[in-house]
Design a protein around this nucleic acid. Structure first.
Lengths: 132, 132
DNA sequence: TGAATGTACGACTAAAAAGGTCGGATTTTC
DNA sequence: GAAAATCCGACCTTTTTAGTCGTACATTCA
């Protein structure tokens, strides 16, 4: 329960690579090699990060990605949200598709807990995660 | 990502039922009806809670379960751990079965984040979740 | 003592999510 | 125009989750 999924892990590895390297653009392929992650999936993740303004994509022969956002200003919450979409501790909080919804005895408690968890993840920046 | 699973939800509903009712024993069947959860699964969850000392099982014609532990002293972490076993933010932290392990560039950061998350969940009691 | 009620537990099946792959289109540079 | 890169949709496979079934065991009460 409450596991980090692969996409988030790959995103973290990629960001670490950018954070530690110089500022030149790096191709998806290079990132995949450096992180030992599958190339296609890595490409996917980088695209998503780029479409959300964390990386900047550059087309062309020597294209690739460049880190354009300060990792101290990106929270773990934001990253998880960007990379695998849904947030929320329980399905009912986002999809509203719970069978119980009408009869749910713990809706308020779960909403309550959910907020605490989100606030917690919002309080941690990616930079903080890297720099122990 | 980081979703509460059904078993934990059922456990929370059951505990809420106990916390709000009087102190008589309640059968698994009654809990299932009250919470609109599948009977067998509810029974399972209650058994687990009982085997970990949160509930006490009573056999016999008017048997059932009774809450025996103060919910202020049970953390969300403990509950998640009991009900669905594994803990840890990433597989590699518990199972040690990650392909990358040797090459992993984010092991320390993930361990670091993992500890923060666990501490966070340990800091929240079930009672606190119920009483907003 | 035996029937009713309930717990305990393993094996199985079906549904959903995660992880990864393939193929092709678009954009830029040389 | 070819090469190298980003982009994007559809698909498949594996794993996890959720739920069911069947059976054995314990206790109470008539």
């Amino acid at each position: 329960m409450s596991k980090l999924n692969k996409k988030v892990e790959y995103a973290l590895m990629a960001l670490k690579h950018f954070a530690e390297g110089d500022d030149t653009t790096v191709s998806a392929k290079d990132i995949a090699e450096a992180t030992h992650a599958p190339a296609e999936v890595t490409a996917r993740v980088l695209q998503t990060l780029s479409s959300h303004g964390i990386l900047k994509a550059e087309y062309g022969l020597h294209g690739g990605y460049r880190l354009v956002k300060d990792l101290a200003k990106v929270s773990v919450y934001e990253l998880m949200n960007i990379v695998d979409g849904s947030t929320g501790l329980a399905k009912c909080l986002s999809d509203k598709e719970c069978d119980l919804l009408k009869n749910c005895t713990i809706l308020t408690p779960v909403e309550n807990l959910n907020k605490k968890v989100q606030d917690f993840y919002k309080s941690i920046s990616i930079e903080e995660v890297f720099h122990v």
